[in-house]
Amino acid sequence: MLGGLGQLARPDAVASLRFLSEFVNPPSASTASSILSSSASTPHSQSSNGTSESGSTAPATTSKAASARTKLPLPGTGPSHVLDCGAGIGRVTKQVLIKAFDHVDLVENSAMFVKQAKEEYLKPEIDSGRVGEVRCCGLQNVHFEGTSWEGRFDVIWCQWVLGHLTEEDLIAFFKKCQKGLKPGGLIIIKENNAKTGIVIDEDDSSMTRSDLVWKDMFQKAGLKLLKEEMQKGFPSGLFEVKMYALEFIA
C-alpha cells in the first residue's frame, strides 16, 4: 500500500520490473519491456513508503551467483508462476507481476481487500486466467506443503507486508516458502529500511527493520542474498526502500 502517495506507483513499478528483469524472462506478450524502455528518465532521488526518515542513496549490489544465474522460469518447467504476499487489492499484481509472469496467485489477510480484488480490481485478470487463487490468510498461517501451492512458484514476492510479522513468525514463514518454490525459485522482498535497529509504528504495531536486521533474518532462515538494490525515484524524507533477491542455501 502506498499510504496515500499514489504518485509513487509508477517509480515503484518500474524499479520492481527492472529488478525482476535480471532474474525472470517475462511472457512474450508482456508489456514489461516497453515500460522499462520508457522509464529511462525516471528520477534517481532516494527513499520510500512510510514514516519520515532521510537516507543516502546506495548502489545496487549483485553477487557473482546472481550474475551467473539462468533466468527463470527454468527450462522445461512451463509457464511462470509468482505469489503476491500481502497483496492488498492487487496493485502490485496488476502493475508489476502480471507483466513479468504468466500466472499470479495472491494471499491477503484482509477479507475486505480480497473481496475487492476478486470482484473489482483484478476481475479482468481473474476472468482471463492470468490471476488464479486469492487466499484470505495471514502469512503466519499460510501453508504450501500438501496444497496446490506446493512447488508451484518461480518467485514468492513480498512487498510492504513483512513488517507485520514478529521475528519468529518471519523466519518460520521464510522456511515454509521453500516448500512453495520450484527448484531454483526465489524470494524477492521489497520493504522499508530503518537506519539502525528496528522502528516500531505504535499505530499498527508494524516494524521497520534496518538492513542489518533484515540480513540477520535471512541468515537465520537459511537464505542466501543474491542481489540488493535501493528504490529510486521516491521523494526524500521517507524511509528508504530496498529490494532483496534471495534463494535457499543448498
Rank of each mutant, 00 (worst) to 15 (best):
L246D: 06
P235E: 11
R91W: 04
H143T: 12
W157F: 15
F101Q: 01
F174L: 06
C85M: 00
D154L: 13
G86A: 01
G180M: 00
F23A: 12
L181C: 01
F144E: 12
E240F: 05
A221R: 11
D84A: 04
P75R: 10
A58C: 10
S110G: 08
A58H: 10
Q46E: 14
T166A: 15
E133C: 13
G129K: 05
L36T: 03
G132M: 09
R209N: 07
W157V: 10
E150F: 10
S80M: 08
K94C: 00
V134I: 04
V82H: 08
C85I: 00
L20R: 12
Q178S: 03
P27Y: 12
A221E: 12
A250R: 15
A194W: 13
G76C: 03
Q159L: 01
L223Q: 13
M112S: 14
D169H: 14
G180S: 03
S34I: 12
K175M: 07
T61L: 14
D203H: 13
S33D: 11
A58V: 15
S37R: 05
L170I: 00
Y244T: 02
F239E: 01
E22H: 14
G55H: 09
Q95R: 09
A66C: 06
L226V: 04
A9L: 10
T208N: 06
G4F: 04
V213C: 15
L238F: 02
K215W: 07
C85R: 00
V142A: 09
T62R: 06
I126P: 05
